[in-house]
């Protein structure tokens, strides 16, 4: 397995407040890697560090062999060109139709013709089940559809790395399951590496191949590996409590 993203001794902070420290783990090609932990532990903050929105206090983030935060703007932009991000609320631009939301990255980063861009938009929207919704504005569609439209925008440039911030938050169980399945399908089809910020246990056990657990009290990672391994082998009570909804390992396994 090839490590595509390596986090080495990372410490994150807001001003003088340390959010997480001494984070060291790798994300392999083709992984669906879950960043998990309780509310306020710094999951989304770690995601912001990974996608270049927040500079680490100390430590390094490698994309392949390149230290992201020592690269110049242009080199960083080349890496970010290979990433697709689905934000928690979808983060669609409200003044644009869904088609325009998808067209913007294509116009920014490719020299494709107008008709080709339209075809790609139709294709990507049909992948997420939104065929025919090209002319809708984000305010005219439901929350679940906004998430899926956000996913279509995230994959519009065929990214190597896909980042999801709480993808199933605010969705009903059926829509959440459908979105999980869609993430796996798209990962399998595009061959992308997926990084998922979530505290939804269903999603974690259903789709994550590897995960890291961030702890809000210890302010560091307490476990890394596949969710099943963590559940069976972790010695940290907080990890077990998180993965069993506080019911304990024995009760869950029975």
């Amino acid at each position: 397995m090839t490590a595509v993203i390596t986090i080495d001794n990372l410490t994150m902070s807001y001003g003088s407040d340390i959010i997480q420290k001494d984070l060291t783990f790798t994300i392999n090609r083709g992984d669906i890697f879950a960043i998990m932990g309780g509310s306020g532990c710094g999951k989304s903050t770690l995601l912001r560090h990974l996608i270049g929105l927040h500079r680490p206090r100390t430590g390094t983030i490698y994309y392949g062999t390149e230290d992201f935060w020592t690269l110049d703007d242009q080199e960083q932009s080349l890496i970010l060109r290979k990433t697709g991000i689905l934000y928690q609320s979808g983060a669609l631009w409200s003044s644009m139709t869904l088609a325009d939301n998808l067209a913007l990255p294509l116009q920014q980063y490719t020299n494709l013709s107008g008709s080709m861009i339209q075809d790609i938009i139709h294709f990507k929207l049909s992948l997420v089940g939104l065929k025919g919704c090209e002319d809708y504005y984000p305010s005219e569609i439901s929350g679940g559809m906004r998430k899926r439209a956000g996913l279509a925008r995230a994959i519009v440039l065929d990214p190597e790395y896909l980042f999801f911030d709480e993808p199933s938050a605010g969705l009903d169980p059926v829509n959440a399951k459908n979105l999980d399945e869609l993430i796996v399908e798209i990962r399998n089809s595009l061959g992308a590496t997926v990084v998922l910020v979530t505290h939804e246990l269903h999603s974690i056990f259903a789709i994550a191949t590897n995960a890291v657990y961030l702890d809000a009290e210890e302010k560091t990672m307490l476990a890394v590996g596949s969710p099943e391994e963590m559940l069976n082998n972790s010695t940290h009570q907080n990890v077990i409590d998180f993965l069993t909804r506080g019911e304990g390992r024995r009760r869950t396994s029975s």
Binding site: S126, L127, G132, S189
Partner: peptide
């Protein structure tokens, strides 16, 4: 995937 869902 693309062809499996009917258009809205």
């Amino acid at each position: 995937l693309s062809c499996s869902t009917p258009p809205k």
